[in-house]
Design a protein around this nucleic acid. Structure first.
Lengths: 165, 165
DNA sequence: TATTGTTATACTCTATAACTATA
DNA sequence: TATAGTTATAGAGTATAACAATA
């Protein structure tokens, strides 16, 4: 370990600071691009998971979004009253609700995905293609490494367990 | 543009999500390692800037930390009453206070830097050295690209204007 | 008895507004 | 008049606690 760290190169610009700068720019750009999706980025993520994974329960969604489960109801209420998702009682465990995306939800998601992609491209536009690729790939590897090492007994979301259509 | 994006590869794990996972892990580990520094990460960053840059005003520090200037007083109060920094009235503009680090502050910072480094190493330990290096370098390039494109008329902090001892 | 989802409440954090002292 | 720093207050966001339904 003890790599050639940019941390040492620019005092005050530690890794956390750098990631904060990037993430903040990403958030602003993407939140802006998602003005027509209820609850913005959170609503978008819920739609994404609902569309591409097998229906998750609210607890699973909460863990995936890294928020408390008590925050979910009002987010889902908005998505549901906008007709983008539905809460289905799980047949095997009638306490749990599976969040299912509607046809309208899929249409809205499709538009949103394009908008998010465009916004993200703009955030990344300041560095050359090679740097961009290296950043996306290494960030992906690192995030999955951290995520899969989470001490959850009950795993957050089987991120790799994707339902391919 | 339109690179081979992990975004498309793993639905629900967009760039913002990945950075959030990494940054959260970093925050937890580092905040933990900085238990003896008043105000944790923020206190640490203030000490770092005060030690390695020419003394910044509180407005400059606020912008560097991406917080409102009204949040700084209570942070500085703690650092000052712990004897780690001092507020010096700027001779050229008696309204402004320059935040200066004390000798005790430098000692505390030295310990803190080692602790932060160790914590960060642990966060990054899950991926191979090459990935780690690529991540740190590309993140650095991207963060500086975004940061220098900020629409501040009054620049946040001349990150490159470092005072080398 | 434990867990899912829900609601109400309390708490934390942040930003807004108003003030002072300088410019 | 505008800006740096400060303070008090209001607002947004979050978690804590208590509840009903189900396991």
């Amino acid at each position: 370990m003890r790599d050639e760290l940019p941390t040492a190169a620019i005092p005050g610009a530690d890794l956390g600071w750098m990631l904060g700068v990037i993430l903040q720019a990403w958030h602003e750009a993407v939140e802006d691009a998602l003005s027509d999706v209820p609850q913005g980025i959170r609503g978008y993520r819920i739609l994404t998971v609902a569309a591409h994974h097998k229906p998750a329960t609210q607890s699973e969604l909460a863990r995936h979004l890294s928020i408390d489960r008590t925050v979910l109801p009002y987010i889902l209420d908005e998505l549901e009253s906008a007709g983008l998702v539905e809460r289905h009682v799980d047949a095997k465990d009638r306490r749990a609700r599976r969040v299912v995306i509607t046809d309208d939800g899929r249409v809205r998601l499709r538009r949103a995905e394009a908008a998010v992609q465009a916004a993200q491209d703009e955030v990344l536009a300041g560095v050359p293609t090679g740097t961009r690729k290296r950043f996306l790939h290494s960030a992906s590897a690192l995030a999955l490494s951290i995520h899969s090492a989470q001490p959850y007994l009950d795993p957050c979301l089987a991120v790799l367990d994707v339902v391919r259509e």
